[in-house]
Design a protein around this nucleic acid. Structure first.
Lengths: 343, 343
DNA sequence: GTTAGCACTCTTTTATAACGAGTGCTAAAT
DNA sequence: ATTTAGCACTCGTTATAAAAGAGTGCTAAC
C-alpha cells in the first residue's frame, strides 16, 4: 500500500518527532543522511501521507506530525523488535538484585525503576490475589465487642478486617469457629471463599457453635474479597516535563485522572494479556487523549497476576518502552514463578 | 506599636489579597466601606507598613501584598477565633456519620474531606502505632523456607512481614516459639518489642527450642517497628488551581516534593502538638517557600496519635483552615477515644 | 519522476506605542 | 498637624505593526 520511500519518510518523521516534539519539515528531512531525495519530493510524499491520514499539520504552513492513525501504523508495522540498551537491561535487572521477598515490594520497585528509566508515568497493577489460595484464617479478639479477622494466602499476602463480635460469645467458641474454617477452607482460592463459606461451612458450624450465624456473616462480610488489587505508581509528576503538557488545563485533567484510583484501576485492568498499546483517543478518556498507554501483563506460571503499564504522551518512545515492558514483565514472571511456584 | 488605623488597613489588605490574589492598591481600599479615609492617607500608611516589613510591592508602582512577616503577624495577632461555617461543620461531621471502625479509614476520609473543603492539599499522618500494645503475634508458615509473621495491636492495627525459616525447623517448634512470644510480649508497646525480645525472651526461648536464635533474629528483624506511620493525602492536584502556582517550575517542584513521602513524613512529623502554622520560608524547603503549612495533632485520651495538615499557598485562608483543623482534630480525638479507650 | 524556484501562509519575534493601575510627593484644605 | 487633592512618574499589560523564519503548494524546467 505504501511505497518503500513513503515508509522511509514516514518512519523518519515519526522518529524525529518523537525525539524533538517539533513538527518536521521537508527541508530538515532532506538533510538527513538516510534520505537522498530533494525537499520537493519529500513535500509531495508528505502531502500523500497526509491525504492517507498518517500525518497532520498543526497549521497550514507547518511541518508534519504523526496522526493517531499514523502512530497506530507505526506501532503495528514499523516497529522492529529492537535490542534493549545495555543500561536499561542493567536497570531492570537491579530490581531483582536484592533478594526481595514480598511480591508487593518487587512490584513497587518495578514501578519506580520504570518511571525513572522512561521519564513517563508508570502504573503497576497487582499482584492479583483472587486466585491465591487460603493458607490460614486467624481471628484475634481485641475486646468484648470487636475482633480482627486475618487471612493469609499461599503467596504471603495478608489481608485483615475488623468486625463486631456478637454479644456474649466466648473465646472457646471463637477458637472452634476458626478451627472449622481452617479445616474446611485451607487451599480454597480467595474468590471462592464467600460462596464456599455459605454452601459448605455454615452447616458444620451450626452443629458445633451457638450463635455461629451472627459471627459467620460478620466474617464472610469482612472477607468479601477480592479486595481490589492495589495500584502502584511511579513518576506521577513526570508528565509535567513533557512539552505537550505545558498547558494547565491538560495537566490538571491528567493528574486528577491519575489520582482517581478507581478509574485508573478499570483502565489498566481491562487490558488483555501480553503487550498492549492504546494511543490517544483509543483510551476512551478525554483526559488521556494526548497520551498513550502501553501495558504488559505478568504471571506466575500460566496464571496471570497483574499488569505493568507506562503512560506517556502519544509522542512516546514506543519502541524502547515496549522492549522495556516486555523484558521486565518476562523477568518479573520468571522471578515470581521461581519464588512462589516451588511450594 | 501599630496604630489602630494601621492595623485596620493591614488586616483589610491581607483579607483582600487572600481572597483575590491581586496586589491591593490604595484606591480600591479607600472604596471599602469599613475604610473612611482617602487613598492618599492610605498610601502614607501603606508606605509605613512597608517600612516596618509587613507589606511588599511586586514592583515599584504596584499595589501591596503581605510579606511573610506580615502573614506571621496576621496569624499571631489579627486572627480572632472565628466561628466555623455551618456547612463546614456539617462536612466535617459527615466524616463520623458512618460508623467507621478502622482508624486508618477514618483518617483517610478526613484527608479527603479536608482537601475538598479547602481546595488545598491535605496531609494526614497517622495514627501512630509506636505506643500501641501488642495483642498477638502469629506465625504462618508458607512452605519449608518462608513464613509470615503477623502482629496485631490493641487498636486493631495489623502488620506483617515475610521471613526465611531456618532450615530443618519443625512446626512444633514454631508453635512453641509463638506461644512463648505471646506469653511474654502481649501488652508490650510496639516500640519496646525489639529490646524486650532480646533482653527477656531470648533466654526463655533458648531453654525450649533448638536453633531458636536464627528464627528469633529473623523475627526480631521483621518486627523492627515502628514502621513509619503512613501518610494519607487529599487533593494533591489542588495546588494546580492556585494562581501562584501557574508556573511550571514551581508546581513541578512542589508536586515532586509532595510525592517524596519520606521528606513529607519528616516535615509533618516534626510539628509539636496543637495547632501550628509554618509560613513560606519557615518551612525550610525551597519547594515550599510559596506555601504555608498548618498542622494540628490528634490523640487518644492524652496520647498523641498523629497529625492533620493542610498545605496551601502562603496566601491561604488561615482563619478558616485553622478553625477547620481545630474542629476536626478535636472531633477526631473524641471519636477515637470513644472507640478505643473503652477497652 | 524529480527538483529548483517562488509566491504565499502562518507562527514567532521584535519594536513601539498606548493604557491603566498604582505610587510618591507637594501643596492646599481642614 | 493631619488629611487629602492633584499630578508627575513608574512599570506591567495590552495592542498594533512590522519583520523574520520555517514551511508549504504549485509550476515549470530538468
Amino acid at each position: 500500500m505504501l511505497s518503500d520511500r513513503q515508509l522511509l519518510i514516514f518512519q523518519v518523521i515519526v522518529d524525529d518527532f518523537i525525539r524533538s516534539a517539533q513538527p518536521v519539515g521537508s527541508r530538515s528531512l532532506s538533510k538527513k543522511e538516510e534520505i537522498q531525495f530533494s525537499s520537493a519530493t519529500i513535500r509531495n510524499e508528505m502531502a500523500d501521507l497526509e491525504e492517507l491520514g498518517f500525518l497532520e499539520k498543526t497549521h497550514t504552513s507547518s511541518g508534519r506530525i504523526p496522526s493517531e492513525k499514523g502512530y497506530r501504523f507505526y506501532v503495528d508495522h514499523l516497529l522492529s523488535p529492537q535490542q534493549l540498551d545495555a543500561k536499561d537491561v542493567d536497570s531492570v535487572r537491579s530490581i531483582f538484585a536484592e533478594r526481595i521477598f514480598e511480591m508487593e515490594k518487587l512490584v513497587q520497585k518495578s514501578a519506580k525503576i520504570l518511571s525513572e528509566l522512561t521519564n513517563y508515568t508508570s502504573i503497576v497493577l497487582g499482584p492479583a490475589v483472587r486466585e491465591n489460595k487460603l493458607r490460614r484464617i486467624q481471628i484475634v479478639p481485641l475486646n468484648n465487642e470487636a475482633a480482627i479477622a486475618i487471612i493469609v494466602t499461599d503467596t504471603g499476602y495478608v489481608e485483615n478486617k475488623m468486625f463486631h463480635l456478637p454479644p456474649g460469645i466466648d473465646t472457646g467458641d471463637i477458637e472452634k469457629f476458626v478451627n472449622i474454617l481452617n479445616e474446611r477452607l485451607t487451599g480454597v482460592p480467595l474468590e471462592e471463599l464467600n460462596s464456599k463459606i455459605y454452601k459448605e461451612v455454615a452447616f458444620v458450624l451450626s452443629q458445633h457453635i451457638r450463635s455461629y450465624d451472627a459471627m459467620l456473616s460478620s466474617i464472610a462480610d469482612s472477607l468479601k474479597l477480592p479486595v481490589n488489587e492495589r495500584l502502584f505508581f511511579g513518576g506521577k509528576t513526570n508528565m509535567l516535563s513533557q512539552p505537550e503538557f505545558h498547558d494547565f488545563v491538560k495537566i490538571k485533567n491528567l493528574l486528577t485522572m491519575i489520582e482517581h484510583e478507581e478509574d485508573m484501576y478499570d483502565i489498566i485492568r481491562q487490558n488483555p494479556s501480553g503487550i498492549n498499546v492504546k494511543i490517544g483517543k483509543e483510551n476512551g478518556v478525554s483526559a488521556m487523549e494526548d497520551c498513550s498507554l502501553i501495558t504488559a501483563t505478568y504471571s506466575i506460571a500460566s496464571e496471570q497476576l497483574g499488569t505493568i503499564a507506562i503512560l506517556g504522551p502519544t509522542r512516546m518512545e514506543y519502541s524502547r518502552v515496549i522492549s522495556l515492558l516486555q523484558f521486565l514483565s518476562t523477568d518479573l514472571s520468571t522471578a515470581l514463578t521461581k519464588l512462589y511456584q516451588s511450594k
